[in-house]
Write a protein that binds this DNA or RNA. Structure first.
Length: 563
RNA sequence: UGGGGCGUGGCCAAGCGGUAAGGCUCGGGACUUUGGAUCCCGCAUCCGGAGGUUCGAAUCCUCCCGCCCCAGCCA
């Protein structure tokens, strides 16, 4: 087992599981990932998935996928499907252990009857509003429901009639009889079942009473033989109730352990808020590449490997934290650096005419596919008299430390020749529209026989051979590190970054990019990693920038601007 | 003023009585046909604060301060 003989520090959950194993409290390790199918999975869920599936695997155990589908009005099959797809994409496998809390409705009902029979549960006729008022406040105890002491026979009969559909929605509940004065509000006679006359995506109209999370979760864990029920901090207050049900029922008792959920800077990880971004049109959908959803990240160009690595690096603890999104970006760069094939693509083209290059001549120059991976081989890229280079790679009046192209200066065209700018062509407004240049034929491939050096190497594309493309540049979704942090009552939408998307229409890529399949990821040399978007099916190639390359020059300029 | 948690460098996070791991960020340098990658070097005399115990404390005790969660017939 990797954990016991390693000296690597382990987080408190692994330590607890290890301890339970050594002490023989649980004969094996069996966890579960229990999403409610009411939305798309995001990177915060990825953390939980990595913990649930990861720990099980490390201990040679198993992890179930169980949908917590106890609230039919919020849940949909669309979500159960997307959730499964995202978990598989992330790289985890629940094999044949796909379960639903709704699979246990009959058993749960039987458990409820058992509690009623023990005098530990009762049917309550209070309205939702009345229950709230009877519950008391954080500092004052609640008071007991007038229905708390119904007879066993009456409770049994009423509960059966609730199930039979004899009562209107919301008219009655089944409640646990615990302690209306408990400091922990979850223990003040919590609702176990409520009446909802709504069809369930799996059980149809077979039920009109549905168990609450607290009455379903622990028992589901128990039925599946879960050993460690890992969840987030907000359930800490529920653990006494989790334990209470299991103890009262006298059934197998798993151990619940809570950890802090993930918060990421400059974005949000709340299904409710993400839904608002979608519904109010701030993004194009759940899979908008700016979204922190797994489907959004996938479309953006994030890899499962990078996300898993990220989840490992952030650790597991109980401290509320706000993880720097730069770490996520770092993980992606690190993964893609060694895997993504390199290609040249000019985002903002500037036309270059090489005056001493023969008209009509085309050469095929060898380019390395991935310097980090010798096995990736080389490819041939066409070179000709008219090229496009990046507008940013030319400055008529170069500032200090700028060592790209400028009048009279020489640079290297990657994998091609040294190029010197001899003249600048402008339009009526004074904008540079074309560069007249010369090349040195003896520098083919990029090295000068006379040993002279150039300070910069820039990418280029042959105008006649280039493939047109649209490139979408993304920036952080919010301008505030913590969008939830309120300034005088404004909500998170006030902090949406209006410039989170920049569309570049006239890009030009090297010919090899033609026909690239959606989902494939390239490094556009000197710029970043780009993922072919499904929108490419509409005709022109569309690429999403997943993350930029680190950019020393941009840093210098930024520092300069800041003074 | 109730209950439950948490406080280690800019952001995460080890550490569990013996004198502050690691990663990210940031700064500096080397190298470079991506100002990429890689490689060096630097970055907490101090662990929310104050007392106390001890030869010795981030680690034990006491008090204080701060932050988060809970009053859904949501999960």
């Amino acid at each position: 087992m990797t954990l016991s003989d390693s000296n690597q520090p382990v987080d408190f959950i692994r330590a607890a599981v290890l301890d339970d194993s050594k002490a023989g409290r649980y004969p094996r390790v069996h966890t579960r990932f229990p999403p409610e199918p009411n939305g798309y999975l995001h990177i915060g869920h990825a953390k939980a998935i990595c913990i649930d599936f990861g720990i099980a695997a490390e201990f040679g155990g198993q992890c179930n996928l169980r949908f917590d589908d106890t609230n039919p009005v919020k849940e949909e099959v669309e979500y159960v499907e997307s959730i499964q797809q995202d978990i598989r994409w992330l790289g985890f496998d629940w094999e044949d252990r796909l379960y639903y809390a709704s699979d246990y409705f009959e058993q749960l009902y039987e458990y409820a009857v058992r509690l009623v029979t023990k005098g530990k549960a009762y049917v309550c006729d209070l309205s939702a509003d009345e229950i709230r008022r009877y519950r008391g406040t954080l500092t004052e105890p609640g008071k007991e429901s007038p229905y708390r002491n119904r007879t066993l026979a009456e409770n049994l009969e009423l509960f059966a009639r609730m199930r039979a559909g004899e009562f209107p929605e919301g008219s009655r509940t089944l409640r646990a009889k615990i302690d209306m004065a408990a400091g922990n509000i979850n223990l003040r006679d919590p609702v176990m079942y409520r009446i909802i006359h709504a069809p369930h995506h799996r059980t149809g109209d077979r039920w009109c009473i549905y168990p609450m999370y607290d009455f379903a979760h622990g028992q589901s864990d128990s039925l599946e033989g879960i050993t460690h029920s890992l969840c987030s901090l907000e359930y800490e207050d529920h653990r006494p109730l989790y334990n209470w049900y299991l103890d009262q029922l006298e059934i197998y008792h798993p151990r619940q352990i809570e950890f802090a959920r993930l918060n990421l800077s400059y974005t949000l990880l709340s299904k409710r808020k993400l839904l608002r971004l979608v519904q109010e049109g701030h993004v194009t959908g759940w899979d908008d590449p700016r979204m922190p959803t797994l489907s959004g990240l996938r479309r953006r160009g994030y890899t499962p490997e990078a996300i898993r690595d990220f989840c490992e690096r952030i650790g597991v603890a109980k401290k509320d934290s706000l993880v720097d999104i730069a770490l996520l970006e770092h993980c992606l760069r690190e993964d893609l650096n060694r895997r993504a094939p390199r290609v040249m693509c000019v985002l903002k083209p500037l036309r270059v005419v090489i005056e001493n290059y023969p008209e009509g001549q085309v050469e095929e120059l060898a380019a390395v596919n991935n310097p980090e991976d010798p096995g990736a081989g080389t490819r041939r890229v066409p070179f000709s008299r008219v090229l496009y280079i990046e507008q940013d790679d030319f400055r008529e009046n170069p500032p200090p430390k700028y060592y790209r192209l400028s009048p009279g200066r020489e640079v290297r065209l990657r994998y091609a020749y040294f190029l010197q700018c001899v003249d600048v062509v402008k339009d009526g407004q004074g904008n540079v529209v074309e560069l007249r240049c010369t090349y040195d034929p003896t520098t083919r491939g990029g090295d000068a026989p006379d040993g002279r050096k150039v300070k910069a190497t820039i990418h280029w594309v042959s105008a006649a051979h280039a493939v047109p493309a649209e490139v979408r540049l993304y920036d952080r979704l919010f301008v505030k590190e913590d969008p939830d942090e309120g300034d005088e009552g404004q909500d998170f939408l006030a902090h949406v970054n209006p410039n989170s998307l920049e569309v570049l229409a006239g890009c030009r890529g090297e010919p090899g990019l033609a026909g690239a399949r959606p989902g494939s990821i390239y490094q556009f040399e000197r710029q970043g990693y780009f993922c072919v978007d499904p929108d490419s099916a509409k005709g022109t190639l569309v690429c999403n920038r997943a993350v930029s390359l680190k950019d020393e020059w941009a840093r210098i300029e930024k520092a300069r601007r800041a003074g």
